Computed example of a mutant assay.
Amino acid sequence: MTPRIHGGTDALGPARWDFSSNANACGPCPLALQAVQQADATRYPDPSYTRLRAALADLHGVEAARVLPAASASEAIQRLTAWRARAGDRRVWTPPHAYGDYAHAASAWGLERVAGPALAQLVWLCDPGSPLGQGESGAAVQAALEGDARTGVLDCAYAPLRLRGASALDPAQRDCVWQLWSPNKALGLTGVRAAYAIAPRGSEAAVAALQALAPSWPIGAHGQALLLAWAQPAVQDWVAASRTTLAAWAQDLRALLARHGWACAPSDTAFGCARPPRPLDATALRARGVKLRDATSFGLQGWWRLSAQQPPALAALDEALQEQEREAVR
């Protein structure tokens, strides 16, 4: 089984200056936070999520029957993989550098990871993806769309945080794949677990099959409140406005890393990967309250994933890197 490695809180607790998580550093979104805080936790949500599905369908301009609630993006990845494995799929493709839960779910269900999307029955697309923050390749998109026996899933977790460029899929192509949305990152509320998928057009029977694989109430009252807030125009406006701030912070982060001799990979988001000029002492950084995400588990040994953060965090990173440089010459 592939290990589960994530950014954010670890056994040492939350880091004061956390560059390891891709959550929107402008968050939490005030309106979404208020909605979560005011959620009625004394009652079960509607088990059919009727109002929630209608709100999300309206947001995306689709029929409510195409909306599949999920406990989180990770839960949806597990459930979608289980669904395809039960249907007889045996081969899966993931991007070369991607979120580890795709591979973990494949391993759990005995699916073989293959070298190219054209060889797979289940294809995971990320646009943009983590850790690099880059858009999906046109070849992978084309392969995912070819053949009735192939299932394509587009992870849209970071689509709301795209700072430049456009999706590799046009609207008609997006209607042919499963779209997986987990807005807690864009809203800066990753501790609230809730997500949903938009099924391909004409896949209502598949939605019913996936609902049958879920427990009752996969989303609790707080997650439902988060997603209902996400569907509000004012919250969408807040996310859009945050991208301007994130773009400036991302530019400052890359400039700082360049001053310290780091090589930065291209990124269309406020996070990305960079390689330091010498090995990094992550333990010493953590002791100073600074946490980065080691990209080795993504297949990028020697690289680190960092997200744009507010100016005080950037100053703390600058000071910590200066200290490591002084230690290196002693």
Rank of each mutant, 00 (worst) to 15 (best):
R91G: 06
R275F: 05
Q78K: 11
W93N: 01
L227R: 02
A284F: 04
A197D: 06
G110I: 10
A70T: 04
Q173C: 11
T151R: 08
Q211L: 15
W249T: 03
Q134S: 11
P200R: 05
L33F: 04
G165V: 09
N184Q: 15
Q322H: 13
E136Q: 15
T81I: 02
S216G: 15
A172W: 02
R164E: 15
A320R: 05
D148C: 06
R293G: 01
W238H: 03
L119P: 00
L321K: 13
R293F: 15
A250S: 14
Q121W: 10
T244Y: 07
V207C: 12
G299Y: 13
S203I: 02
P183D: 08
G138R: 13
R16P: 03
L187M: 10
C156G: 02
R91V: 04
P14E: 11
D148Y: 02
W230K: 08
T81V: 05
G13V: 05
P277Y: 10
E112L: 13
D58Y: 07
A208F: 06
G100I: 01
D18R: 04
Y158Q: 11
E63G: 14
Q37T: 10
L111E: 01
R201Y: 11
L285S: 04
R51D: 09
D18Y: 03
K185F: 13
S48P: 00
G135D: 09
T151S: 07
L132M: 12
G220E: 08
D58T: 15
A328I: 06
V92H: 07
G165P: 12
A76K: 00
W230F: 14
V153G: 00
P311N: 13
R43K: 12
A23D: 02
P14L: 09
Q78P: 00
S182G: 05
L68A: 05
P311D: 12
N184G: 05
G191A: 12
P117S: 04
G220W: 02
L122S: 06
R243H: 05
A35R: 00
W109S: 03
A258R: 09
P117A: 14
R326C: 12
R164T: 14
V153D: 00
E112H: 09
S74C: 08
L111M: 13
E204A: 15
V329L: 13
R254C: 11
R278L: 09
P30Y: 09
C29D: 11
Q173P: 07
T245M: 06
N184R: 15
P233H: 08
T9S: 03
A240F: 02
A197V: 10
E136R: 10
N22C: 12
W303H: 11
I219S: 08
A247D: 11
A186V: 08
L306N: 09
D155F: 00
T50V: 14
R286A: 14
R91C: 12
Q34R: 14
L125P: 03
A221K: 02
R84Y: 02
V239C: 12
A248N: 04
G147F: 01
A234K: 07
R79G: 02
A108T: 09
G223Y: 01
P312R: 06
D237L: 12
P200I: 12
A258Q: 13
C156F: 01
L33K: 11
W124D: 00
G152D: 09
G110T: 13
Q142F: 00
L132S: 10
R275G: 03
A143G: 08
S48N: 12
I198M: 11
